[in-house]
Design a protein around this nucleic acid. Structure first.
Lengths: 168, 168
DNA sequence: AAATATTTTCAAAATATTTTGAAAGTTCAA
DNA sequence: TTGAACTTTCAAAATATTTTGAAAATATTT
C-alpha cells in the first residue's frame, strides 16, 4: 500500500470511528489529516484534500481548537493562518478525556446527586429501585472520575509501560 | 422532588447522555426506564411512558437485547412479552465495554496494523509522520485493549473498592 | 381451522445534523 | 484610507438519522 492510499484509509476510518464517539465525521477527518501532516497546513489545503467547503473547514477547525487538539500557527512573513495538531498521542488522549469529563461526566454526577435526594418511602419498591439505580451509577461515575484524574496527571511512560503490570 | 419528576429527569438526561456515546436517544431512554423499573414491563408500557410508537420501541428493544443489556421475560400465564434490564451497574458497564471493544477498538487496531506496513521511504518526512502517528495510536489502543480486558475480568468489588488505592 | 392477540417489518414522513457558499467581517500592506 | 487577501458567519440546501404506523408475520387460544 502506498502513502496516499493509506492516508485516505486512515482519514476515512478515523472519521467513521469519530461518529461512534459523538464527534462529527468531518471534524475527525480534519483531525486525522492534521495528525499525519508533519508541517502546518492552511484551510485551503484542508478544503482541497478533504473536498469540503470553506465554511465547513472553518467551523470544525474552530471546534478542534476549543477541544485543545489543534493550534493556529502564524508563519513569519505569511499572511494566511496555518493549523497544526498535537502529535503526542498521549497528550491527545488526556486532552480528550479532560474535556469529556468536564462536558459529560461532571454534569451527570451533579444531576445524579440531585436525584438521589428524592422524597419518598424507601420501602416502596419503585422508589427503592430508583434510588438504588441512581446511587450505583453515581458511585461508578465517581470512581471513573477519580481514576481518570489520576490518568490525566500520570505521564505517558508510566501509562504505556507500567499500568498493565499493576493490573495483572 | 417526587419520584415521578425525578424519573422523568433521569430518563431524559440519560437519553441526552447516550447521544454523546453513539447511542441513540430513545434506546438510552428505554434502557433508563427499564433500569429503574423493579419489575419487567411490556412494549405497551414503554410506548405509553415514553410516548413513542410501537415500531420504535420494538426496534430499540431488540438492539438493547443484542447489546446484552435487556432480556425478554415470559411471565407464566401471560401472553405478552415482558422486558427487564440488568440492574447490576458493574455488569452493565463491563457489558458495554465488551461490546464496544469488539465493535470499535478491535477493527480499528486491525486497520492500524495494516496501515503501519505502508511501503515507502522512512526518511521521507511525510511517510515518517504517517507511520509514527499510526504506530503510536496503535500502541495506545493495544494498551487500552489489555487494560479493558483486565477490567472486564475483574469483579465489581475489586474495582469499586480497590482500584483507586492502586492508582494513588 | 378460524379468530384473536401480539410482534415484527419497513417505506414513507418527520426530525436532526451537517454542509454549502455567498455575503459580511477582518486584517494588513501600500 | 483603500483595496486585496483572508476569515467568519449563518440561512438555506443537502444529507443522515430517527420515528411512525399500518400491513405482514407469527403465536396463541378457542
Amino acid at each position: 500500500m502506498k502513502l496516499a492510499e493509506a492516508k485516505q484509509q486512515f482519514i476515512s476510518s478515523w472519521g467513521a470511528f469519530g461518529t461512534h464517539w459523538g464527534i462529527n465525521r468531518t471534524m475527525a477527518q480534519i483531525h486525522a489529516l492534521l495528525m499525519v501532516s508533519p508541517d502546518p497546513i492552511t484551510q485551503d489545503d484542508l478544503m482541497e484534500q478533504l473536498d469540503i467547503s470553506r465554511g465547513n473547514v472553518n467551523m470544525n477547525i474552530r471546534e478542534l481548537i476549543t477541544w485543545g487538539l489543534v493550534d493556529r500557527v502564524i508563519l513569519p512573513g505569511e499572511r494566511r493562518e496555518y493549523f497544526t495538531a498535537e502529535k503526542d498521542i498521549w497528550k491527545v488522549a488526556t486532552q480528550i478525556i479532560k474535556e469529556r469529563k468536564k462536558r459529560e461526566l461532571d454534569p451527570m454526577l451533579k444531576l445524579l446527586s440531585q436525584l438521589e435526594k428524592i422524597e419518598g418511602d424507601k420501602k416502596d419498591k419503585k422508589t427503592k429501585q430508583f434510588v438504588d439505580t441512581v446511587s450505583s451509577i453515581k458511585k461508578l461515575g465517581l470512581q471513573a472520575d477519580k481514576t481518570l484524574d489520576v490518568m490525566i496527571k500520570a505521564d505517558e511512560n508510566w501509562f504505556l509501560g507500567g499500568l498493565v503490570k499493576i493490573f495483572k
